[in-house]
Design a protein around this nucleic acid. Sequence first.
DNA 1: TTCCATGCAAAGGGTTTGCACTCTC
DNA 2: GAGAGTGCAAACCCTTTGCATGGAA
Lengths: 140, 140
Amino acid sequence: MTTTPALDPQALLRGRDILPTLQRMAVAQVLLLQPAHMTAEQVLEAARRLMPELSRATVYAVLKLFVGQGLLKELPIDGHATVYDSNVQPHHHLYDVDTGHVVDLPAASLQVLGLPQAVGALEMAGVDVIVRVRGLSAAG
Amino acid sequence: MTTTPALDPQALLRGRDILPTLQRMAVAQVLLLQPAHMTAEQVLEAARRLMPELSRATVYAVLKLFVGQGLLKELPIDGHATVYDSNVQPHHHLYDVDTGHVVDLPAASLQVLGLPQAVGALEMAGVDVIVRVRGLSAAG
DNA sequence: TTCCATGCAAAGGGTTTGCACTCTC
DNA sequence: GAGAGTGCAAACCCTTTGCATGGAA
């Protein structure tokens, strides 16, 4: 692990050459300071508690910016709404098919064998393992 | 493999207690008689070559019915449009992040180690491995 | 002062729904 | 004839875009 938890949203954003506006810091506060899985709507709702005037369009813009700067990852989990994951380290996911809750699975907890043969000469851009389960009660 | 390729759409549908209407047989013809990965829009376009009056709403209804009856699987690959896979055997996917093309990866070509420990006492509903690559030129 | 960020509202794509018509059993 | 299946259009949800305002360098 090379993660140095950035406890200061402003420093976190400056470190990625992102102008730390109030809106961006509100989103960072909600999503980047701890591991979290949230949809855009959930981010908007949570960030508006810190900044009620925050607009939906801005949240989408900020999320897209954060993804581009490597602060967030979009999860390919569910067809309806994009889920943003603030854990950008390689890892996998447990997904509750009934509730939609997601929890991280450390990269080391699963091992995928056979990848080199499977991708052959293609350029590999990443591997996602999604384990669908039932009964994941706690919030993810 | 226990697959007995059903070459007759009508028998295929009756086998699942699905009333074989002309619309459902057109969709089956296009998607179920061979392994394929298609979005609803692609299914509509292809099926309309067999039946020009087919409506979009009916295609969505039929796809949902087929998924419920285990004839199709929805792939959790991309946020925009749902991709339907007529291969319902356990297997994984190679996904071209540039073109959107998908190809099957036989279940045997990859091995995921550590699942029992990862899911613990939860009920496992399935495992999806999506390998993102670039340069997958052929249609998937 | 120039450029970037924000907010609002409208537009856009994918999917679902309401309702009348048609067909199957 | 009763109930299921279909088609059309409108509605819906998530996301993006256009444009005018406001703030940062």
